[in-house]
Amino acid sequence: MEQYLGLINSKPSRVRRIVLKQNGIKSRYYALDKNRKITHSNAELAFLSIKRLFPDEKIPDDIDVLACATGNPDQLLPSHASMVHGLMKNRPMELYSTSGVCLTCLQALKVAYMSVLSGISSKAICSSSELASPTLLSKNYEEEYEHCTQVGTDPYMAFEKDFLRFMLSDGASAVLLSDRKSETGISFKIEWIEMTSYAHELPTCMFMGAELREDGELKSWKEFESQELVNRSVLTVKQDIRLLKPNIIRYWVDHLQYCMEKYDLNPADVNYVIPHVSSMFFYGKLAEEIETRNIDLGTNKWFTNLTEIGNIASASIFAALDDLNNSGRLKANDKILLLVPENGRFSYGTVLLTVQ
């Protein structure tokens, strides 16, 4: 991995082995070459996955809505959806860009779903894509490492920044929504999409382009001097793992229970569960909490491809659904739960699908 991401201060990471052991990821993908040059932009990754929705990779002219999700757009302005649409070059359409972390995929899916469900549009595309690797390159950390050494402080990147370098992957996935099911192959009927934010109760946990202030709020990159942005690695992704561990699973299962009660869902009727987890460590913790609360959604129903493709954040859940679809296991009327957490400031989403 460090052949692609580089060595910080010419030394192997002290936390890499520990992180890889905990997350259980065996392989992953980067849109980088070994010279650390970007091979595909985020918009290009999204565009390539959208093309593969169609057998001949030709995007038809009857798409009404494009909703794009990402936590790593190529630029602040214009919107990520505008850049993806620019690559499609097929027809005018309505655009939506959702921003955040992992849950952006379900935010984009719900926009597309509601547009079709309302009858305003007949076909929509939901795209999710991530290009995290360029932000994880060693060059983005070396100035801070050197600065900390010079002023006699111990670099804290091993816990707040460096460990994330071995968690994230690049990739894209896309979903075609229509007011009628496919004439060839399997379709998935969306029964409902539910999302909950707990930001009113919990502080920020994962962030980029900011630093945590002592009062728990964020100091924006706009408040830093230009050299501080480099010295403090402000534009790298960070996560407060001390806040993550006691909260991420508990609130996730709170949200799941809320959904099951709201929609009167009997867990025994669910055939498959696809949980988006950042690592296999949390896979086990989620299973333990669900069992503790006597919810009949044991891991015998679960499906994940995390260890094979890595954690691609917002693009993970649809990539996993695609692999489950291609496994040959699914049959008509199977029920599938998609579970997506977001630890930016603790938001969660759940989707119920029926195989048709």
Rank of each mutant, 00 (worst) to 15 (best):
3 Q>M: 05
10 S>W: 01
16 R>K: 11
21 K>D: 09
21 K>L: 10
28 R>F: 09
30 Y>N: 03
33 D>I: 11
35 N>Y: 08
49 S>P: 00
51 K>Y: 00
53 L>Q: 02
66 L>N: 02
70 T>K: 06
76 L>F: 06
78 P>R: 08
82 S>R: 02
85 H>I: 08
86 G>L: 08
87 L>P: 01
89 K>G: 12
91 R>M: 10
91 R>P: 13
92 P>L: 13
93 M>D: 06
94 E>P: 09
97 S>G: 07
98 T>H: 14
100 G>H: 10
101 V>N: 02
101 V>R: 01
104 T>G: 08
105 C>I: 12
118 S>A: 13
124 A>E: 03
132 A>K: 08
132 A>Q: 04
134 P>I: 07
134 P>H: 05
136 L>S: 12
136 L>K: 04
142 E>M: 02
152 G>A: 06
156 Y>G: 12
163 F>W: 12
168 L>R: 13
175 V>E: 03
176 L>G: 09
181 K>F: 05
184 T>G: 05
190 I>N: 07
210 A>T: 00
210 A>V: 00
224 F>I: 01
226 S>Y: 07
226 S>V: 11
228 E>C: 00
232 R>M: 10
233 S>I: 14
234 V>F: 00
235 L>F: 10
235 L>D: 08
248 I>E: 04
252 W>V: 06
262 K>G: 02
264 D>C: 11
266 N>W: 15
274 I>D: 01
276 H>N: 15
287 A>N: 02
289 E>P: 07
299 T>M: 14
304 T>H: 11
309 I>P: 04
314 S>D: 14
317 I>D: 07
318 F>T: 10
322 D>S: 10
324 L>S: 01
326 N>R: 14
328 G>N: 03
328 G>M: 03
345 R>E: 02
355 V>E: 04
